Amino acid sequence: MAQERTGVTTFKGNPLTLIGPELQVGDTAPDFTVSKNLLEDVSLKDFAGKIKLISVVPSLDTGVCDAQTRRFNEEAAGLGDDVIILTVSADLPFAQARWCGAAGVDRVITLSDYKSRSFGQAYGVLIKEFQLDMRSIFVVDQNDKVTYVEYLGEMTEHPNYEAAVEAVKSLR
């Protein structure tokens, strides 16, 4: 049975249960399988050798998630070719593609955790009550070591964008 963590996050003040471990700086990034589109699945090894900023959002169709993904898309321009920004949500790949097209997001790779919730469980962000992934940020270096972690205490809050970007820049 997967580990459940309570008392660590809320949605509009109401407690939520997260499934999976709480990752720490220095941990080896867990592998995962997510959908890049309806026919293609990817895993951590597909981004080997890159610095990975993993931005996790519950759904791109909400205000904070929209703003978070747009912000990291803007930041991507100044981070270089050795950095890849992944946005993970439980949205269907169709919805992710539609949203990116409408939003003009072209530097972030959207990945869907809808099939097996593999990412959410491995990174400790699967919300038991909603079966969505909790807003969080992970920076993973070229050797798949976790170098930065931010689990949000409230689902509706913004992450610390500046700290995440600085964590990426510190690896260059």
Rank of each mutant, 00 (worst) to 15 (best):
Q142K: 15
G26E: 08
T9P: 01
R98F: 04
D141A: 04
E75L: 06
F32G: 05
T33C: 08
G20Q: 10
E162R: 03
N73M: 00
I54R: 10
S35N: 15
P30N: 06
C65W: 01
E40K: 14
G20S: 13
L126Y: 04
P30A: 00
Y123W: 07
I19K: 08
E166R: 15
D91P: 10
V168K: 09
T62L: 04
L152M: 08
I109S: 12
L44F: 05
F119H: 10
I51Y: 12
A29Y: 13
L111Q: 09
V140R: 02
A97M: 14
K12E: 11
L92W: 03
I54D: 13
Y151H: 01
C100R: 09
A103H: 03
V88Q: 10
N160I: 02
V57A: 02
P93A: 11
I137W: 03
L152T: 05
A77S: 12
G63E: 11
T87K: 01
G120T: 13
I51N: 11
P21G: 05
L44W: 09
D113Q: 07
Y151E: 03
Y114T: 13
D31N: 15
L16K: 14
M1F: 05
D61L: 14
V8E: 11
K12V: 00
G104M: 13
V56H: 04
M1Y: 06
T33Q: 09
L132T: 11
L86M: 02
T9Y: 02
G104V: 08
A2R: 00
E40A: 00
V34R: 13
T33R: 12
D81R: 13
A103C: 04
R107H: 11
E40N: 10
R117G: 07
I51R: 05
K115A: 08
D91W: 05
V149Y: 04
L126T: 14
E40M: 07
L111Y: 07
L86R: 06
L16Q: 15
I19D: 09
D91A: 01
L60R: 09
L18M: 03
G80T: 11
F119V: 12
G104I: 03
Q142S: 10
I85E: 05
E75C: 03
V108E: 03
I137V: 15
F138H: 07
K115C: 08
A122N: 08
A48K: 10
D27P: 13
G120P: 00
V8M: 14
Q96M: 00
K52E: 05
Y161K: 13
G78W: 06
V140E: 01
K45S: 15
